[in-house]
Write a protein that binds this DNA or RNA. Structure first.
Length: 261
DNA sequence: AAGTGGATCAACCGCATGGTT
DNA sequence: CAACCATGCGGTTGATCCACT
């Protein structure tokens, strides 16, 4: 579709912002707001494209931006949220007041990712089966700990969500619905509308379907053959709404159960 | 002091998405 | 319904800093 070319006009400035430019942008936004980023630079007298102005404002000039290093609590929150949401930096930033998606993304790539890698290197898991190997092929930093939560939300009564394993863009979440445990669990169908109908199904990043018992036991070393669990993998393509899982996690007070790394 | 390489982070780029005409 | 437009998002880049040799 017709995507508007950005900064197509010659003469628009690029690169680092000067204090003067910052001040012009701040003054303009404080006076007139930023209803139209595209028109803003022209009206404010800036030789920048609207996109650049927006980014500068959002990531640096906004009055509610928090400055300084991330606290240990913030870092742990990022780690937990990344487990639940993957690389959804804006979603993570929305839950960290004063922090921007760009900042969080940078912190993740420069600090947290490495820290997890180091910790996991000293905590290596040995692969034991071909199916396990298949899943771990792209797994650069598996997290061997388990994060659990439960929810008493009326819509999802007695739901327990357990993050079994996470790697780059894949989360494996076991959902135990006590109400549905008594229902038929032979339903081997995948539904994009609700993971509750994904009984005993796992989808990996190539949309392959694996038997629940083989996959789960390969991760935690236990036989889940009789589990009436729902196994769910987010493959990072937005087929499933990880916000849903995050909400369950938060409602259950999951943030207090931080995995040890 | 100069050179080098890794770490950091602000900014850019391209694509996706949703709203409007 | 299609085309257009504005904005948001995530990945990537490149300038700068800093420690080390």
């Amino acid at each position: 579709m017709g995507r508007a070319p950005c900064c197509e006009k010659m003469g628009l400035k690029k690169g680092p912002w000067t204090p003067e430019e910052d001040q012009i942008l701040i003054n303009y936004v404080q006076k007139f707001g930023h209803a139209n980023w595209r028109a803003l630079p022209k009206q404010a007298g800036l030789l920048r494209c609207g996109k650049s102005c927006r980014l500068r404002w959002i990531n640096y000039l906004r009055p509610d931006i928090k400055r300084g290093n991330f606290t240990a609590e913030e870092e742990q929150t990022i780690i937990n949220l990344h487990q639940m949401l993957g690389n959804r930096w804006s979603a993570i930033a929305a839950r960290l007041p004063g922090r921007t998606d760009n900042e969080i993304k940078n912190v993740w790539h420069t600090h947290l990712k490495k820290r997890l890698l180091n910790n996991n290197n000293s905590n290596n898991l040995s692969s034991s089966s071909s199916k396990r190997q298949r899943i771990d092929d792209n797994d650069q930093h598996p997290i061997s700990t388990t994060t659990s939560c439960s929810s008493s939300d009326s819509d999802f009564s007695s739901v327990t969500a357990e993050l079994l394993h996470q790697n780059d863009n894949k989360e494996i979440v076991v959902i135990k619905d006590e109400e549905e445990e008594e229902e038929d669990n032979s339903n081997n169908q995948v539904s994009s509308s609700s993971a509750r109908s994904c009984t005993n199904i796992i989808i990996d990043d190539e949309s392959m379907i694996w038997p629940l018992d083989q996959v789960v036991s390969s991760f935690d070393g236990h036989d889940h053959h009789d589990d009436e669990s729902l196994l769910f993998v987010n493959n990072g393509n937005d087929e499933y709404d990880m916000e849903f899982w995050y909400d369950i996690f938060i409602k259950a007070g999951g943030s207090t159960e931080l995995p040890e790394f």
